[in-house]
Amino acid sequence: MPSLDRRSFLLAGLASAFGAGSARAAFPERPIQLFVPFAPAGGTDIAARRLGETLARQLGQSVVIDNRPGANGIVAGQAVVKAQGDGHTLLVATAASFAAAPALGQKLPYDVAHDFVPVGMLGLFPLVLNASPALPVASLAEFVAYARQRPGQLNFASAGIGGTNHLVFEMIMQAAGIRLAHVPYRGAGLAAADLMSGQVHVMIDSLAASLGNIQGGKLKALAVTTDARQPQLPDLPTLREQGVDLVYPGWASIVAPAGIAPDTLRILSSAINAAMADAELVARYRELVIEPVAWSPQETSTFMARDRAILTELVAKTGIKLTE
C-alpha cells in the first residue's frame, strides 16, 4: 500500500474507532500511563516518549511515561498486570521479557500469554553481527569459513546469558553450522569494548548502539539480522542475502492488562498505527535506528507468540540455562 494511502487508511480507521463525540468521550477518560521497563534516555524509552507524544495529540489525553527498570521487566510488568484492564495503563513489552524469559524458564509472577493483551508494536530494532577489527575476515562468508576451520577456537560476546544477543548468535551458529565459545558480560557496553580491543571475536548488538563505531572503523559489520538492508548502512547485506537463513530483529510492543474491552482495544490500536504513519515520529525513529510497524492486535499477538515458540525451541535444542 503506498505510504500516503496507508496513512489515510490508518487515520480513517482512527476516526472510525473514535466515532461520534459522545462515543469518543468514553475512552480515554483520563491520562494514559505507559510503563517502560528501562531507565530514562535509552532507545526504547525515547521511542516510548515519542509515541506517547503522538498518541496524546490523537487521543486528547496526556500519555505519562513511568520508568520502572529492574528484574528483566518484571518490576514494570507487575505494576501493569495489577491494573484495571480499562486501557489507561499500558506496558512496553520486549523480546527479553515476553519471549526469552518464559522460553528460558524464568519464574515470572504472571503469564505473559494470558495476563496481557497485545495492542500494537512500539517498533522493530535492527541487530547487526559485528566482528573485531583484528579478526581477518571482511564478510559473513569469510567469517563462517574461518570459524569452520577453527572449531572451538573462536568466541562470541554477549550482554549476559539468555539475552537477545546471546540467543540470536546461538541461532546463527545453528543456521551456519559453526560453534564458538560464549563469553557473557554484565552489559552490552562492556562486551562491545572488548570486541573493539580484540579480546573477543564477534558479537550481535543493536545497530543503534553499533552504528557510530562501525562508521568509525572500530567494528567490522558483517550482516544485519533484519529481512531487508537498513538505510543507515545500505551496503551491508542481511544474513539471508549471504546464505544464513535467519531473520530476527529485536522488538518491543505495547500490551494492556487482560480484560480490556474490544472497543477500547480498537481505539488504542488505531491510534498507535496512525502514529506509525506520522512523519515526525517516522523521522525520529529513523534517527534512533528503529523501524515503525503498524500491526493489528492479532498480528502483534501472533508475532509475539511465534517468537516465544522460536526461543523455546532454541533453548530445548541448546540446553541454555540462566544459571550456566
Rank of each mutant, 00 (worst) to 15 (best):
R179I: 13
G152N: 06
A157H: 12
M171V: 06
H114L: 14
A181E: 15
A283I: 13
R306I: 11
S8W: 15
D111T: 11
T94P: 10
M173K: 15
T312C: 09
G60R: 09
G43M: 15
L4Y: 15
A305E: 13
L314S: 07
N72R: 13
F18Y: 14
T226I: 06
G77T: 03
T302W: 08
I172R: 01
L233Q: 00
G216T: 09
Q232D: 08
G259M: 13
L281H: 07
P37C: 08
V224C: 05
L236G: 07
V63D: 02
P37E: 07
A192S: 13
V63E: 04
H114D: 12
G217S: 07
V75K: 08
L180W: 03
A138W: 08
V244M: 10
D66N: 14
V289G: 00
A147R: 05
V144C: 05
P133G: 05
L281R: 09
T89I: 00
D5H: 14
F18I: 12
A101I: 05
T94W: 09
F18C: 09
F169Y: 12
G243H: 06
I310P: 14
M121T: 05
A294Q: 01
R68A: 13
V137G: 07
V289A: 07
V247K: 10
L129P: 15
D111Y: 10
K321I: 12
A188D: 06
H88T: 06
I310A: 12
M171D: 04
I290N: 04
P37L: 07
R49I: 06
A252C: 08
A294Y: 02
M171G: 01
V81F: 05
A209Y: 00
H88R: 03
I310Q: 11
A275E: 00
K220P: 00
A223G: 00
H166A: 09
L11C: 09
A279C: 11
A17Q: 07
V75Y: 10
G259R: 04
D194Q: 11
A191Y: 01
T164V: 12
L233R: 01
G120Q: 09
L314K: 04
V202Y: 05
F27Y: 05
G42C: 06
G250R: 01
